[in-house]
Design a protein around this nucleic acid. Structure first.
Lengths: 211, 211
DNA sequence: CTCTGTTTATGACAGGTGTCATGTGCGGCT
DNA sequence: AGCCGCACATGACACCTGTCATAAACAGAG
């Protein structure tokens, strides 16, 4: 369970952040089987991950995408600023294309789905630590095929406010726009995305990571 | 790492089903550390879980709720019929109350979130195998507080068809009802749930597990 | 058998929504 | 300077929705 003399000069110090105790623990156990990897800290939430990282200064932070408090990408962003020596990578269950883009912009070096094996994960951790990038090919293909958002900033903003099925008047109020303008933006988004109605537009934009 | 002579007469045979390879592998490794537990089969999808169960006849099936093909609860239902000697339990990331109810009705004996530790999970597997039930207290509380659905069968059905933002005419067609009737059901659901519009109704019903 | 609740339907009305034409002003690009 | 795209707005029109009144058929409870 502990790391006696096996913690040699080259051992890679890892931070594990995942809100699911079961998974985090299991992962820690599996990674501990690799001689050159040492899990030096674990966290169950975004803020905790950040705090643990600053306290233990790991070489690589393995972050789950969905965590309470702050998601993996925002933790990576903060880490980039506050602990530049630490490389970050994201592990995710349901990878939507938009997240990849956001993650890459945040300086994340690795992005993998939880469908990979622990063996693979260990390799990728080493790859990332060596300063290289690794993005799951399938996720990358999805991201490329989904392309860039055709929506303007305002259109995306209004679409986001429309996400929970609120009526136009409420969206208008929250966006400080006239109801007519809101309807125009919504209409533009719907036609740009080539869908039937605003709800489908919201779903598609979410899928593609455009909101 | 392996189980040489330790696989004694009393060893519990376990089936592990989870679409996330990383988690499944890690879990298998952790459970293998327990002397009295043996993972005899693994599956990455609903149908595969069923096939593996029939082939390996485990004592306990540990099923993830969300899997491609068929979810944990439907696998449990089939298992109850085709392999009654096998106890089933569900492990889930984001437990919504309705799933618990469905699961219990399907004869599932254990229902736990992935936030428990591996230690706990092992205990619960033993509990379940002994013929007892175990439901995570927090999940149970949620389920109780959310109560029973006030919606009639048809109302729930129509609400479900309305989930993806389809217009009334489409819902009517898919449900083989007149558009007017659909609007009546939607209106009834909205007023029963005390919400503003059908979209909020869909979300609330989903949260509570009523659809 | 009557009462009650569900399923199904219709018609009517107010109000919300989707679409289009049209207009103004701002900031970039050539 | 001139053009283009974006942000923002208004008005008009057809259509969709939410709500209500009303009603027939049927099934189960008492």
């Amino acid at each position: 369970m502990t790391e006696p003399a096996s913690m040699d000069v080259q051992s890679l110090r890892i931070l594990l952040a995942d809100d699911e105790h079961l998974i985090r623990g299991a992962l820690a156990a599996l990674l501990a089987l690799e001689d050159d990897l040492t899990v030096v800290a674990e966290a169950a939430s975004g803020p905790e991950a950040l705090a643990m990282a600053l306290a233990h200064r790991p070489d690589v932070a393995v972050l789950d995408l969905q965590m309470p408090g702050a998601d993996g990408v925002s933790v990576a962003t903060s880490l980039r600023r506050e602990l530049p020596s630490c490389q970050t990578m994201i592990v995710t269950s349901h990878g939507r294309p938009g997240h990849l883009k956001r993650a890459l912009e945040a300086g994340v070096r690795g992005f993998v789905p939880k469908t990979v094996s622990a063996q693979r994960l260990a390799e990728i951790i080493r790859t990332v630590h060596a300063g290289n990038r690794y993005v799951d090919p399938e996720l990358a293909a999805d991201a490329i095929s989904s392309g860039d958002s055709p929506l303007t900033a305002r259109e995306a903003e209004v679409l986001e406010l429309a996400a929970d099925g609120a009526p136009v008047s409420e969206i208008a109020e929250r966006a400080a726009l006239s109801p007519g303008t809101v309807r125009n933006y919504l209409s533009a988004a719907v036609s740009k995305l080539g869908v039937e109605n605003r709800h489908a537009a919201v779903r598609l934009a979410r899928e593609r990571g455009w909101v």
